[in-house]
């Protein structure tokens, strides 16, 4: 028989290295001869979209499009250390460092514009599409490339961002181990085949706090991927570990979700800007997978009335639990 059930779970997730460890990101923003701006930072693009999201931030600061940002992050000899691409920290930490560097560059550009345009102050100056101009009299205008041409050395600004956390007391755990925290909730419906023990996730709704969405498509992509990875974690993936040996060390035996396994997922982006974050944006790379797994487990219980305290819930394990329950009731 096929039985359906629904389940929900919610979580919080602390961003960054945490626990008082100096969590530092560094970045340079450098004006190029053609008026584009290069960002130098050691933040790795692992597929999560760091290069894109972290280009959008300086583009916003400088009134440029992302095409005018040259993002350089591949070479340690020319980029400053921006910490690891982990702990969901790059949007928040390196995002802040890049924003600060871009703001410094912006201030410098404005200062130069005031001087070159022979203005009394920076009041009313706008920065857009590589131009700095006075809105009330647009003839007072200078381009980024004109400013670049005046420099002997490229205009280059550096910024460091260090996150704030407080080491916990070793006896009581009291402190402020992470900041910021990110929240999410997931609700799912599953169908359990009581003859085979197979669990199928029918649909899901996944609400993720993002602070502010820098790039909604990238966020949805992370949410979809997190959902799939969580499905693998709770119902498919088994290393076959035995006395230190991994028996399932191939993709033919270590089963990760395929396109056929994935349900319809409704991604709900929840915005509530965090005041210490760049434009309010918090990282989401890890939290997007966390609430999905327990939601599935709760839905399995709702469907067939068995509590699965051990993952992965393979068909064999679930079938055994269902049979035990039936025997107990009989």
């Amino acid at each position: 028989m096929k039985k359906r059930g629904k389940g929900i779970a919610c979580i919080f997730y602390g961003t960054g290295y945490g626990n008082g460890f100096p969590d530092v990101s560094r970045a340079y923003a450098e004006l190029q001869p053609d008026g584009k701006v290069a960002i130098y930072t050691g933040a790795t693009e692992v597929g999560q979209g760091a290069k894109t999201a972290l280009s959008q931030i300086p583009a916003e600061v400088l009134g440029l499009s992302v095409d005018d940002i040259i993002f350089i992050n591949e070479d340690t000899s020319i980029t400053p250390d921006a910490g690891t691409a982990a702990a969901t920290r790059q949007t928040y930490n390196t995002g802040n460092a890049i924003k600060m560097a871009a703001e410094e560059l912006r201030n410098e550009l404005i200062k130069i514009a005031v001087k070159e345009l022979e203005l009394n102050s920076d009041i009313g100056l706008k920065m857009k599409d590589g131009k700095i101009f006075l809105e009330i009299y647009p003839d007072k205008c200078i381009t980024f490339s004109q400013i670049a041409a005046m420099q002997e050395e490229p205009l280059r600004k550096f910024a460091v961002f260090t996150a704030q956390t407080v080491q916990i007391d070793p006896e009581t755990g009291q402190g402020a181990p992470y900041w910021p925290y990110t929240f999410s909730a997931c609700a799912v419906e599953v169908e359990v085949d009581t003859e085979t023990g197979k669990v199928e996730v029918i649909r899901g709704a996944h609400a993720q706090d993002v602070g502010r969405a820098v790039n909604p498509t990238l966020i949805e992509g992370q949410m979809d991927g997190g959902f799939a990875m969580a499905m693998g974690y709770v119902i498919y993936e088994d290393l076959g570990l035995e006395n230190g040996k991994i028996w399932n060390n191939k993709l033919s035996s270590y089963i990760i979700p395929t396109s056929m396994d994935m349900p319809e997922i409704q991604n709900i982006i929840v915005e509530d800007p965090e005041n210490t974050a760049p434009y309010g944006a918090k990282g989401i790379g890890e939290p997007v997978m966390i609430s999905v797994g327990p939601a599935i487990l709760n839905a399995i219980y709702d469907a067939v009335g068995v509590r699965m305290t051990e993952i992965p819930v393979t068909p064999a394990k679930l079938l055994k639990a269902i049979r035990e329950k039936e025997q107990k009731e009989a």
Binding site: E220, M223, D224, G225, F227, L251, T258, S259, M262, I265
Partner: peptide, 16 residues
């Protein structure tokens, strides 16, 4: 979904 079922992806969850 069937057409791409022989191709694994660990990042996207396939939806996009």
């Amino acid at each position: 979904k069937e057409g791409i079922s022989g191709n694994l992806c660990r990042c996207t969850g396939y939806a996009k």
